[in-house]
Design a protein around this nucleic acid. Structure first.
Lengths: 146, 146
DNA sequence: TTGTATGCAAATTGTTTGCATACCC
DNA sequence: GGGTATGCAAACAATTTGCATACAA
């Protein structure tokens, strides 16, 4: 399974940086990359509850922060709802449905060209890029029409 | 002055929608579009303090929410710092400096093509789009090198 | 005059922090 | 064995809410 390789790589990076490989960290990362939901910290905590009943929310928050620092995840912030996390390692667009809250990814080759142009025009040292389209997903459009 | 026209348009839209034209609302919108800073609610509140000493933060928050609903502003959310607001009415890229917190706009014609492609590929009903590049601005790059 | 926006204060909520304990190395 | 990550509870900070008052229409 592809996600296992990525968890394995995470494990190695932790070890090589002298950080501890704990079951909580591995489980959180695994959940993040296997979930299609762009989960919130709370969702991750709830989902892992059956397996790690004593795991605290603080551990989830700290691990997610670590993953973001390591470049293995990105944080999607919204003004009025909890942060969501994205473990997709490829540049992509996030489509955020304002009706149901779902977020889906879309790969788009134009993002590379866009980045080049932005770097050239701004002289920014770009560390990450983030693209969101907000609107109504096809499913919710149908639901409304019904 | 260009911003006066926009304030005037805001006034008319409020009136036509049966909403009240208050000096606070006009001042908040004027400050937002004249500021180059992509201000937070707190910055706006602080800046208008001398003119409206009794204005409450709640009024600023409510007005900003109203502006976002009316499509006159967009909210830039960050996980770890207050929301910032953007009154730029054109599609653009936001360049966010992780060193000094500054945000600058960059117009980029590619965004239109990107939107078209996204709509075609996803069948999303797109209401707004948001593009952020995070990194280090030229000024902070120089400061570091010094 | 009527009702909506304001201002104030309290409440809310997601997230962070401090510290003792557990457990990875 | 040594020290870092965890778990718990308390603290925090931005934002929202409820309600009485002020003021735009």
């Amino acid at each position: 399974m592809y996600s296992d390789e990525r968890v394995e790589a995470f494990r190695r990076r932790l070890a090589s940086q002298g950080q501890r490989v704990t079951p909580q960290r591995l489980a959180i990362y695994k959940y993040l990359i296997e979930a299609e939901t762009h989960p919130s910290a709370e969702e991750i905590h709830r989902a892992l509850q059956p397996i790690y009943p004593s795991m605290s929310p603080a551990t989830v928050y700290k691990t997610l922060e670590l993953l973001v620092e390591m470049g293995l995840a990105t944080e999607l912030a919204f003004g009025d709802s909890p942060n969501r996390y994205d473990g997709n390692p490829h540049e992509h667009v996030n489509l955020v449905c304002t009706e149901c809250g779902s977020i889906v990814d879309l790969e788009e080759s134009l993002l590379e060209e866009l980045r080049e142009r932005v770097v050239r025009a701004s002289r920014f040292l770009v560390r990450s890029q983030r693209h969101e389209f907000h609107g109504v997903c096809p499913r919710c459009q149908n639901a409304k029409g019904a």
